[in-house]
Computed example of a mutant assay.
Amino acid sequence: MSLEELGEILSREIFAGLKFGGKEESIHEEIPAIFIEPTILGLQIILDGYNEDDQDKTYYLSVRPLRMSDVKWGKFPVSDLLTSLIRHLLYEYKQIEILEE
């Protein structure tokens, strides 16, 4: 599955049809990445991974505040909540495996 194909699934299933784009902007120097713009609630949503020719087809979905200094981090495990939500929403896609860090 390509970066763009996964972006289409995530767009449809999680982000209410908001499209990923911006691959040509090369926001990461050597790693292909696409993102949703504008931000949602001040959150930057980025999907990145490796080139199509690589054996490793691992992609990473990042949902993070655009300006980190504005966020007061508490004890609420936001990443755990998002991982569980994404796993639930993508359950029917057997070709997508959700890995935890």
Rank of each mutant, 00 (worst) to 15 (best):
M1A: 05
M1T: 08
E5S: 09
L6M: 12
G7C: 01
G7N: 02
G7H: 01
L10N: 06
S11N: 03
S11L: 02
R12C: 02
R12S: 11
E13H: 02
I14R: 06
F15R: 13
F15Y: 09
G17I: 08
G17T: 05
L18D: 06
K19H: 07
K19I: 13
F20Y: 01
F20P: 10
G22A: 11
E24K: 05
E24Y: 00
S26Y: 00
S26N: 09
I27N: 01
E29T: 14
E30K: 00
E30D: 09
P32W: 04
A33Q: 06
I34F: 00
I34M: 08
I36D: 02
P38T: 05
P38H: 03
I40Y: 08
L41M: 15
G42R: 07
G42M: 07
Q44C: 14
I46C: 10
I46D: 09
I46A: 15
L47K: 02
D48G: 01
D48K: 04
Y50I: 02
Y50D: 04
N51Y: 02
N51V: 02
E52W: 00
E52S: 08
D54Q: 12
K57Y: 01
T58W: 00
T58E: 07
Y59Q: 09
Y59W: 10
Y60N: 09
L61K: 06
V63Y: 04
V63N: 10
P65D: 15
D70R: 04
K72R: 10
W73D: 07
W73Y: 14
G74C: 06
F76A: 09
P77V: 11
T83Q: 14
S84M: 06
L85F: 14
L85K: 05
L85Q: 11
I86R: 11
R87I: 02
L89H: 07
Y91K: 12
Y93M: 06
Y93G: 03
K94L: 04
K94N: 13
K94F: 13
I96C: 12
E97F: 14
E100N: 08
E101T: 13
E101Y: 04
